[in-house]
Design a protein around this nucleic acid. Structure first.
Lengths: 144, 144
DNA sequence: TTACATGTAACAATATAAGTTACAACTAAT
DNA sequence: ATTAGTTGTAACTTATATTGTTACATGTAA
């Protein structure tokens, strides 16, 4: 199991919008960098737009960042692209037997444990911004 | 997306083995508590067995715990049932365009971020034992 | 009006999860 | 040694999610 790559693609898109901010970032151009279909990009862009991370308009070519990259965290992107629902990172088996003490109480017992683990992961994502990513990409690029 | 319920079922099984340690815990009995098919239980039990968390033998009815429940953490179960591979909680899009500075460096840049977030989640799982779960189940049971 | 972009619906291909059937291998008890 | 019952697995089905793709309506600017 892996969390959808919409997340990594979302990060890729936002980083590209910053690094190529003087160019015209059409879905086709971005798709060329990500190496996928433009429609995939447009779908993800739609989610980023709903979250206010990106500005796009029907008919007009190119997308722009909706916020300063220092104010967009990995968690913002993660939530925008809807890869994991709240408290649902861990699947829990449905309908355990209520006439068994374990079956009756297992769900309520483990769900706070799972929620805490999920929150801990999300908190880590909140500590990194697109700016951090962009800086790192540029640094690695220098090395060439 | 959710992490496979094999994990929650694994926790259920181990808790049941403790709480019903004086009974004979066949796959059919456990399946009755989890409310699934006995074969599903046997598959998961096989994984728990490989990890040394459970003792089962072909032909002989009933499973037993392989370790003291205070020494089995959620992380042990999580790893045993193989729901998430190391460094693969987050999927990353393959083959980004190497002739674009972003495409060239995005994978190397985000993978440590993703690994850190995954580790943070796993660390949280390592703080809770089956004993904690069992105690909680018993407490909730008292309230009845 | 035209050229070109975005926004979406609809569909295909693939992968995984979860359940199910069937049966071989094994053990303990008679 | 035979039998009854259990575990261990392979094979298959069903359901769901992801990713990619085609097609086209909608919108904008020149």
């Amino acid at each position: 199991m892996s969390i959808s790559s919409r997340f990594s693609v979302g990060i890729h898109i936002l980083s590209l919008l910053e690094i190529n901010k003087d160019g015209v970032n059409t879905s086709e151009f971005i798709a060329g960098s990500v190496n996928t279909n433009p429609v995939v990009i447009r779908k993800i862009m739609g989610m980023l737009k709903n979250a206010g991370l990106v500005k796009v308009r029907p008919g007009v070519a190119g997308a722009e960042l909706g916020k300063d990259i220092s104010e967009i965290t990995m968690l913002d992107v993660y939530k925008a692209v809807n890869v994991v629902q709240e408290k649902e990172l861990f699947g829990v088996h449905a309908n355990p037997n209520p006439s068994c003490p374990v079956g009756k109480n297992i769900q309520e017992t483990i769900s706070p444990i799972f929620s805490a683990a999920q929150l801990s992961m999300e908190k880590a994502l909140d500590n990194v911004t697109i700016m951090d990513v962009v800086k790192e990409i540029i640094e690695k690029g220098q090395g060439t």
